[in-house]
Design a protein around this nucleic acid. Structure first.
Length: 786
RNA sequence: GGGUCUGUAGCUCAGUUGGUUAGAGCGCUUGCUCGACACGCAAGAGGUCAGUGGUUCGAAUCCACUCAGACCCACCA
């Protein structure tokens, strides 16, 4: 009876062992080729970690461990994304405050406190899971190191003419009170009404029916548009229209872009309802009537509705229009709104001064970059391409917020000069009083103010490959680490993290930021629903680890191919647990026969048929598993190893060799083969189940291989010089078939497999020299071929 | 409207460049404590490979269309 493997006790033992012995520490002096990972820095503001996080980080880590064993010096740092709007929103929600009701320093202090807690929560979970990060190389996106690089990025792009300050209509979140980028928006389908409202032609007095979902924007209307091919309205071109209720005149303009079939064919252009309005205002040089304040309330141009927020104003304006018979009818419609992904509130468009990175002018180059990287899975590249092709806005990087990386910019209030600091002075905070920048270099004015805005959080995270490589002072090492070898990430941030990182790398270095990209899917609940705190549809990972072990949970994470979503499935975790136990028991069996002697040498000259049979299968398995890991297909790798371990090794080979081991003179060759097979199995499983494989390694193999950890040992190679005669293999397959017949016979007779039966007849013709083997393995006194 | 992915046993999924009788795990049935393991072992039942049409000597696999589901993007006055 073997002593049971206690996952909790042993896993925490190895966790400490790995830490004490710095098993995963990156050695920059190593002569091995580097493999660097641009680890996703999670938003520390996620206050509930669930199996979705487990899944994506485990999947990347399988690859990392594989690479480490395959002879690479792995650089696997960890970052925490703790700046920007996600963190601010988290703090606002948690403490029920908003940025306008707390001082900037107090707010930042709260954010820093929260992110510290958050990063500790993450670290604890990653350590529990056995994520093999080098914890001496960590960064946070708000620390000085990251700020310095973000600010350098700003200055470099400014000098290269890619950074521009524009005073233009931009997406605006009235709740978060900041400008947004196109990528910060999400679609939301909503039920609404298409309102048919009567305008009037000034000269003819003719009724002009306009269909709009945004009646509250009527006081912002600057023109009506129609299609010149629309014969209903051909007499109106060049005339003026009277705005109902607000009573002012706007021109009526013809343009082919107007869809004759939508609504009434008449369109009102406001400042601003959508991107079409912006286009028309620009194209036809229309005046601007801004009615919306930054806080989402209407201004005095909205007359009696001033001070009301948009939704209230819509309701009130509709009431008035109805009272005065301007509202002809209302049609219920479903339409798609652009909402801010962080707060879910519909975005507006407001004209403000913001910093932009010019991306629209380089779409072709940005598309070309996609071809220079290896995408796993390949179809995810299409998402990047689609996004780049459909981009309509330059990347707005200014946020009117508090907690983020400050812009390294001052403005001269007299001549308007943009003043940048010296790169060697970074990081800087222009909101703090400081001495170096106090005079305008252009006009000598002392009237200088610092930029109060902070940068978009992606402005920093788009620099992660550089941030991690610059954790080293040495330039040679920096260059060996950048571009990164691998970017692992989830699919929903292709248009943000991935895209922005590609932009930066192209503009700064005319390079790709990484060579390989592996895109993971999502972890879902048992029913396939997204996991959310609100639904409470998840078991805390700590609880699963406590019950089944980290190895078992990691085993579950191999269940989905790259890019696929994975449902949580307790059965798969249990299967992982059973694999752990089975490994432990199989190893115990082998070790009980090894008795601490050295069986690492394999005598290829004296192998029996079953030895050649399994060694040949081992070679094939190693080749397949290696190929799968090389192409980031850990799921296929696991299936191959499972099949070889459970079926080929345990169910067959171990049974085949027992009689040789229990003889009075135990067979030494069998032990040598067991050594090779077991060692290869635990090594192949090591990237997936680091704890149990380390345990088994240290029960025997470490003394012979002289490695401190299985995770630093060499990835198995197929056994060279193994000559397998194909006729002999065929013959052995027949032997296995006869053993199968005997097993079936015993099962049908309800006999134990251990029960020795006197005779068994078979039609399968096998060479006489195998009869003795079959009799010994299948426990038959006499096998007869007829 | 454009695009991506998915549809194989009751459930979760494998099925390599088209090639005999379509596989695994879980679940189910019948047995088995055989000197690693009952968290195990052996045997068994269970599939019109979403549907239709086509290419082919041969299709789960290739092509077209249809249906169903998931997701991305765009339009939306």
């Amino acid at each position: 009876m073997v002593e049971k493997y206690n996952t909790n006790e042993r896993e925490s033992h190895w966790r400490e062992y790995w830490q004490e012995n710095e098993i995963y520490k990156f050695n920059p002096q190593s002569a091995k080729p580097f493999y660097s990972v641009d680890t996703p820095p999670p938003y520390v503001s996620a206050d509930h970690l669930h199996i979705g996080h487990i899944m994506s980080y485990s999947q990347a880590e399988f690859i990392v461990r594989y690479k480490r064993m395959s002879g690479f010096e792995v650089f696997y740092p960890m970052g925490f994304d703790d700046n920007g709007l996600p963190t601010e929103r988290f703090v606002e929600k948690k403490y029920n405050i908003n940025k306008n009701k707390i001082s900037r320093p107090d707010f930042i202090k709260k954010c820093l406190e929260e992110t510290k807690i958050g990063s500790q929560t993450y670290r604890k979970l990653w350590e529990l899971l056995g994520i093999s990060v080098d914890w001496s190389k960590i960064y946070s996106t708000i620390n000085n190191h990251s700020q310095k690089i973000s600010q350098w990025s700003f200055i470099d792009l400014y000098n290269k003419g890619k950074m521009i300050r524009k005073d233009e209509p931009t997406f605006w979140c009235t709740t978060c009170q900041t400008a947004l980028a196109q990528a910060d928006l999400e679609d939301k389908e909503e039920k609404s009404f298409l309102n048919y409202i009567n305008f009037k032609a000034v000269d003819s007095g003719k009724d002009l029916l306009i269909a709009t979902t945004r009646p509250e924007l009527i006081p912002a209307c600057v023109a009506l548009f129609l299609n010149q091919n629309d014969h209903r309205y051909s007499d109106l071109i060049g005339q003026k229209a009277m705005i109902p209720f607000f009573n002012y005149e706007v021109p009526i303009i013809a343009d082919e872009s107007v869809d004759i079939d939508f609504g009434t064919g008449l369109m009102m252009v406001c400042s601003w309802g959508d991107s079409e309005d912006i286009k028309k205002v620009k194209e036809f040089n229309l005046p601007i009537r801004t009615i919306l304040n930054m806080d989402g309330k209407l201004n005095s141009l909205a007359g009696e509705f001033a001070g009301q927020d948009l939704l209230l104003a819509r309701k009130n304006i509709l009431t008035k229009l109805k009272e005065q018979n301007y509202l002809q009818k209302q049609e219920p419609i479903r339409h798609v709104l652009k909402i801010h992904e962080r707060c879910g509130i519909p975005v507006e468009i407001i004209k403000t001064k913001q910093w932009f990175i010019k991306v629209l002018e380089d779409k072709d180059d940005l598309l070309a970059q996609a071809e220079k990287m290896n995408w796993y899975p390949l179809f995810m590249k299409q998402r990047y391409i689609d996004w780049v092709k459909t981009l309509k806005w330059d990347w707005c990087i200014s946020r009117q917020r508090y907690y983020g990386v400050p812009f390294p910019v001052w403005y001269c209030q007299d001549c308007g000069e943009v003043i940048l600091p010296d790169v060697s002075d970074l990081p800087v905070d222009p909101t703090m009083p400081q001495s170096k920048i106090n005079t305008c270099p252009k006009c000598d004015s002392k009237n200088i103010t610092g930029e109060k805005d902070v940068m978009d959080t992606w402005m920093t995270s788009s620099m992660t490959p550089l941030i991690v490589s610059r954790l080293f002072e040495n330039k040679v090492i920096q260059e060996k680490l950048y571009p990164s070898s691998l970017r692992p990430q989830a699919f929903e941030i292709i248009r943000t993290w991935l895209f922005y990182t590609v932009v930066k790398s192209l503009y700064h270095f005319n390079n790709v930021p990484f060579f390989d990209i592996m895109i993971s899917g999502h972890g879902h609940d048992e029913k396939g629903q997204k996991i959310s705190k609100r639904l409470g549809n998840y078991v805390p990972p700590e609880q699963i680890v406590d019950q089944y072990g980290a190895d078992a949970l990691r085993y579950w994470a191999t269940g989905a191919n790259l890019g696929e979503n994975l449902k949580y499935n307790e059965n798969e975790v249990k299967k992982g647990k059973r694999t752990i136990t089975k490994l432990y028991n199989a190893a115990a069996f082998c070790f009980s026969h090894f008795k601490d002697q050295d069986y690492s040498h394999l005598d290829l000259e004296n192998l029996s048929s079953e030895d050649k049979w399994i060694l040949n299968q081992l070679n094939e398995t190693i080749e397949k598993v290696t190929t799968h890991f090389d192409s980031y297909q850990y799921a296929k790798a696991k299936n191959e190893i499972d099949d070889f371990f459970w079926s080929t090794f345990c169910d067959n080979y171990l049974e085949f060799v027992k009689y040789r081991l229990y003889q009075e003179e135990p067979d030494q060759i069998a032990k040598q083969v067991l050594y090779q097979i077991l060692l290869a199995i635990i090594k192949m499983y090591a990237p997936i189940m680091p704890y149990i494989t380390e345990e088994i390694y240290h029960l025997y193999f470490d003394k012979l291989e002289k490695e401190k950890s299985i995770h630093l040992s060499a990835w198995p190679k197929p056994i060279a010089d193994l000559i397998v005669d194909s006729k002999e293999s065929e013959e052995f397959e027949k032997v296995i078939a006869i053993i199968g017949e005997i097993r079936k016979y015993k099962s049908e007779k309800q006999l134990s497999l251990g029960k020795v039966i006197p005779e068994f007849s078979t039609k399968i013709k096998v060479k006489p020299e195998y009869i003795e083997f079959i009799e010994a393995v299948a426990k038959v006194e006499k096998v007869v071929i007829y």
